[in-house]
Design a binder for these strands. Structure first.
Length: 333
DNA sequence: TAGGCCATCTGGTCCT
DNA sequence: AGGACCAGATGGCCTA
């Protein structure tokens, strides 16, 4: 449905008030091209403009009958008056301003997200898409850390963080951790590969399981078609980052859990089956519940694994902050 | 110079 | 009717 029947090329260009160029500054050919594009992309507008010109022609030819007397007119569409044109223009400008404001709000939120994911830098900002990818990986890595209930294994942590990120971002993350970025090569599939030399190299081969991929990693729009995360052997390289090396530092372990615990506002649950539909975030409060609580609906899509051992008691909020603080301490120096 | 990223404008759709 | 949200188009800027 066309809402701006008055639109004419000049009006359309003038409405681009936010652009840094006046219409007059456009090369004629470019201007014509833009008009063509506009017509292609908006057939309604073209039709409407045709309608208007047709009407104007009608008015010129049909104003009088063969005797020169004014013709009787039937009901016909009202040509928008100047007031309506101005009002529509105003509304379009207001809508543009709202849209700008909305996008600024979105960018502000993204900026605040940049500040809480690893490797925040005012000078070298992550792109929007990389910020979202890193945030997703960060959440995933933190969840795994919490589920493990022990100090994070740094290399595995960084590998998870870097999954699906571009090589420059991977370098940035590795650089923030003062690791050799060359050890975290991203292959052509976006898969993070640890290529550092290690006595335990390739101890844990790729199993084909998706258990170490963040939810939706293979299909999300944020993803890049990466394969499931591959475990690589690692040795002593991470040890300087820990006061006490992890007791089972030889390997990341798989405890049979299909997916990591989720943390929403300090309320945890161990979920099975399908990852949550993040587009329906308003349902989180309904569907997630702490283990030990009984508020899960009988048909809840998320259940607590009976064999799952949650490393924290129900005062998880403060403890999760503590654990997260330890991890963040590695990044925000 | 090509490609990536971004801001902005714009019209369509949905919802209140 | 009007606002929010979305996606497409476009052009500017930057970098490899």
């Amino acid at each position: 449905m066309l809402t701006l029947p008055f639109e004419e090329p000049r009006v359309m260009c003038e409405l681009r008030f936010g652009a840094s160029y006046p219409r007059e500054s456009l090369p004629a050919s470019l201007d014509q091209e833009r008009q063509r594009n506009s017509d292609r992309s908006n057939p309604h507008m073209r039709d409407t403009e045709d309608d208007i010109s047709d009407r104007e022609e009608d008015e010129r030819e049909d104003d009088q009958d063969e005797n020169g007397l004014p013709k009787k007119r039937g009901p016909r569409k009202k040509k928008p008056g100047k007031e309506q044109v101005d009002r529509a223009k105003m509304r379009r400008q207001e809508a543009n301003a709202r849209e700008r404001s909305r996008m600024h709000g979105l960018n502000a939120a993204l900026e605040s997200l940049r500040k809480v994911v690893p490797c925040y830098s005012k000078t070298q900002k992550l792109s929007k898409i990389e910020t979202l990818r890193l945030a997703k990986n960060y959440i995933w890595a933190l969840s795994e850390t919490l589920s493990a209930g022990k100090r994070p294994d740094l290399l595995a942590f960084v590998q998870t963080l870097c999954k699906g990120l571009s090589q420059p971002t991977t370098n940035l993350v590795a650089g923030c951790l003062q690791l050799n970025a060359r050890n975290f090569l991203t292959d052509h599939n976006g898969e993070v590969m640890f290529s550092g030399r290690s006595p335990y190299e390739a101890v844990y081969s790729y199993t084909g399981s998706d258990m170490n991929s963040p939810p939706g990693h293979s299909s999300s729009a944020l993803d890049t078609g990466t394969k499931p995360f591959r475990h690589y052997g690692y040795g002593s390289a991470y040890e300087p980052y820990f006061e006490n090396p992890s007791p089972d530092s030889e390997s990341p372990h798989f405890d049979g859990q299909l997916s990591p615990p989720m943390n929403f506002n300090g309320i945890f649950s161990l979920k099975h089956e399908e990852p949550p539909d993040y587009s329906k975030s308003s349902h989180y409060g309904m569907r997630y519940c702490a283990p030990g609580r009984t508020a899960l609906a009988p048909n809840s899509m998320y259940r607590v694994s009976p064999e799952a051992r949650f490393p924290y008691d129900l005062h998880v909020r403060s403890q999760s902050f503590q654990a997260q603080g330890e991890v963040n301490g590695s990044f925000h120096n």
